[in-house]
Design a protein around this nucleic acid. Structure first.
Lengths: 375, 375
DNA sequence: CACATCTGTGAATCCTCGG
DNA sequence: ACCGAGGATTCACAGATGT
C-alpha cells in the first residue's frame, strides 16, 4: 500500500500520465478540488454531503455565487434551488471522475436525499439500490410530534444504465450468514471509543460508523481500488479504506476535521493479505469444461447421469456431450434445459452421478478437479 | 358512518356548502377527478402512484420459472420529464384539496420516490418523516447482481412548514409496546387470503397490505376524518378506512379494479379487538449474522478461532468467512460441518475465541452485541 | 390426523464472454 | 453492433400433496 501522502500514478484506463493524489487529504472546496482530478480515474465515490444549506456557514445562489445571509432575502424556493445547484455541481464532477465501471454511494436523510436522488438520475447515473441504514440506537423524538427518525438512506448507482460494476455478491452473502444481503442494514450509531472527541466534545456532528463503510467497501470495491470521498469529515472512509487495503482520496474544507482525520487514518491498521481474502464467485475460478472431466477420467464415456430425482437418465459421450434415452443430445446445460422445457439450466448442479454415498452433482467432480490442479 | 355512495356535507373549514362524494369510488383520470374536488376539503391523502419501474426483458428464477412482473401500461412513462410532469400535476391538486391541517402520504421505490419527494418539497409540502416499509418476505435478487430490494419508502408531509397536523403519538406508542414508533416498519407483503384473486389470478399486481394502511390511518387521522386515495386500485385504503370509522374517497381509472374494490369494501367490517391485535407487527427478534460482529469490530479479520477441544484452527477473513489451515473456506456453519464431516454444525457454539478466562464460544460475543444495541 | 415434503410466487430497473 | 453458448442464480410463506 502506498504511504500516506505520496503521489502515485493513476491506473485510469483513459490517461496514464496524470497522477492521482492517492491516500491524501486535499483541503479546500470540494467542487474546485474535484475539477482538478482527471476523468475516469476513481473506482468508487462515497459522499456524505451536507444536507442543510449552511454549507460551511455560507449560502450559495442557484448559480453558485455567494450570498450574504444577513442582507439577502431567502425563501424556500431559493433555498432548494441553491441546494440543487450545489448538488448537481459536485455530482457532475463525480460522474466525470468516476471510471466507467465505478459506482457512487451517497448518504442522506429525508431533508436532502430526494433532491440528491433526483439529481443522480438526471445526471445519467443508474440507481442500483437504495439502502436503509437502520440505527440500532437512534435519538428519540423528545417532543412526541413525529415518528422516531431511526434511519438514513443511501443511494448506490453505477455510471449509466448499461455500465458494468463491481458487486461482491458472495462476500455479502457470506457476511450475512449465507443469506442474500438485503437493502436494509442495521448498525449502531457511531459512539464509544470510535467516536472522535477533543476535550470531551465530539469533533464532528455526524461521524459515520466504520461498520457502514466497511460493508460498502467490501461490497463494491476490490483491494487496490481507489475510493474518493469529497466530504471527508473526520475520515471514516479513509480509515476503513486503509484497513481494507483500498486507496483513498479525501476532500475536506474544515481544517479542524482534516487534522483529526489524518491522525485517525495514520493509526488505522491495515489488514494483512490473507485476512483480506473473501469468498469468490464461481465465475472468478478458472473455467472447467465438462469434457475436461471426461478427458481426465473423472467420468467415463458411456457412464450414466441422472437428475436429482432420477426423472431423466442420460449417457456421456466421448466429446463430453450427453445423449438422452429418447435420442436427444446436447451439452450438459442445453440438454438439461431441453428435457425440463426450461429456458436455461445449470448442468453442473442439475446432473448427478452415482457415488458411494448416493447421488452427487457433477459439480462436486469439478471442485475436486480444481483442488487437484490449482497450486 | 355514512352509507357507501351517499353524498355528505364536507366538514371543510373553508367552505361548508360543497358536497364531497364520501365513501365512493370515482372512476376516471385521477387529475381530472381531483380538479372537481373542492379546496381544503380532505384530512388526509394516501397515494400509491405508478412507480415507473422501467423493467427490461423477461426474468426467470433459478428453478426456471417465470417471474410475473409489473408490465401494465399504467406504469409506463417515456421519460423522467413525463413522469415528473404527471407527478407534479396530481401533487398540485392534492395540495389544493388538502385541509390546512391535513397530511399526505406517498409510497414508492427507488425508481420514483426521489422524484416524488423533490416534487413534494417544491410544491410547498413540509416533509415530517420518511418511513421505510421493511418487507418480511421480499422477492430475492435471482441473479445475484444487487442487494435484495427488501423495502419501499413512504413520505409523510404536512401542507406547509408551519402547518399543524394530526399525529396520534400515544396510539403509536401503545401499538409498539410502549416504545416510540420508529421510522422503519416491518410487514409481510400482501398475500394469503388478504390478496384479492379472480380465477386464481391476482387482481392487482401491487396490492398493499392492510396492516400498512392501518398504521397510517391510526397514526394520522381521527374517527370521521376523510381520506382521499387518488390511486385507489383494489381499495385497501377504503377497506381499512371503513374498518377504522374513517370516511374515504377513491379515484381509479381501471374498471377491473373498481369492481373488486367495491366488493371488498362492502365486505369490510369494523375491526374488533382480536382483529386489531393481528394487525400489529410482531416484535421482531433481532438476528445477528457472524459478519456483523466482524464489521463492528468484535472480532478482527485475521484473528484465530478454534473448536472447544482445539482440534481445528481457522482464521477469520474480511467478509466473515473462515479459512482453515488446509485452505478450506466457508461460513462458520459450513466450515464447521465440513471439517467434522457432519451434515450440519452450529458455528455459534462450535467455534471459540481466546478470551481472558480461556476459550469462549463466539455466541458470547453475539450476546454482547445484542446487549449493546438493543434498547 | 399429524407431520413432512413439494410447489408456487411476490413493485425487479437481475449475465458474460467470444466471434 | 448482434448472436449464440456457457453456466450462474432464490427467500419467506402459503397452500397443496404425500406418508
Amino acid at each position: 500500500m502506498a504511504a500516506i501522502g505520496t503521489l502515485a500514478r493513476t491506473r485510469a484506463t483513459t490517461d496514464e500520465s496524470i497522477a492521482l493524489p492517492l491516500d491524501t487529504i486535499l483541503t479546500g472546496d470540494c467542487i474546485a478540488r474535484m475539477r482538478a482530478l482527471p476523468d475516469a480515474s476513481v473506482d468508487m465515490i462515497f459522499a456524505d454531503p451536507p444536507y442543510n444549506l449552511q454549507l460551511g456557514g455560507e449560502l450559495f445562489r442557484p448559480d453558485g455565487s455567494h450570498v450574504d445571509a444577513v442582507t439577502d432575502d431567502w425563501d424556500k424556493f431559493d433555498t432548494f434551488a441553491a441546494y440543487d445547484a450545489f448538488t448537481r455541481a459536485w455530482l457532475a464532477q463525480a460522474h466525470r471522475i468516476l471510471k466507467p465501471h465505478g459506482t457512487i454511494w451517497v448518504i442522506g436523510s429525508y431533508h436532502n436525499i430526494f433532491r440528491v436522488g433526483t439529481a443522480v438520475q438526471d445526471l445519467g447515473f443508474w440507481i442500483l439500490n437504495d439502502i436503509v441504514w437502520r440505527k440500532a440506537n437512534p435519538m428519540p423524538n423528545f417532543r412526541g410530534t413525529r415518528f422516531t427518525n431511526a434511519h438514513e438512506t443511501l443511494i448506490w448507482a453505477s455510471k449509466g444504465e448499461k455500465a458494468k460494476y463491481t458487486f461482491n455478491y458472495r462476500s455479502m452473502k457470506t457476511l450475512n450468514d449465507e443469506l442474500q444481503m438485503r437493502s436494509d442494514w442495521e448498525f449502531p450509531i457511531c459512539g464509544g471509543p470510535e467516536r472522535l472527541k477533543k476535550d470531551g466534545v465530539k469533533v464532528h456532528p455526524t461521524q459515520k460508523p466504520e461498520a457502514l463503510l466497511y460493508r460498502i467497501l467490501l461490497a463494491c470495491t476490490k483491494p487496490g481500488d481507489v475510493v474518493l470521498d469529497p466530504f471527508f469529515g473526520t475520515g471514516t472512509t479513509g480509515a476503513v479504506a486503509r484497513r481494507l487495503g483500498r486507496h483513498w482520496i479525501g476532500i475536506e474544507r474544515e481544517l479542524g476535521y482534516v487534522g483529526a482525520a489524518q491522525e485517525r487514518i495514520d493509526a488505522a491498521l491495515p489488514l494483512d493479505e490473507s485476512a483480506l481474502a473473501t469468498m469468490q464467485s464461481p465465475r472468478q475460478q478458472p473455467k472447467v469444461a465438462f469434457g475436461t472431466l471426461v478427458e481426465n477420467g473423472y467420468l467415463t464415456p458411456g457412464a450414466t447421469l441422472t437428475d436429482a430425482k432420477r426423472r431423466w437418465r442420460v449417457s456421456i459421450r466421448a466429446d463430453g456431450s450427453l445423449v438422452s434415452e429418447c435420442g436427444q443430445t446436447g451439452s450438459i446445460h442445453r440438454l438439461g434445459a431441453g428435457l425440463q422445457n426450461a429456458p436455461a439450466c445449470n448442468g453442473w448442479t442439475f446432473w448427478h452421478y452415482e457415488a458411494a454415498g448416493g447421488l452427487k452433482p457433477i459439480d462436486a467432480l469439478r471442485q475436486t478437479y480444481l483442488l487437484a490442479t490449482q497450486p
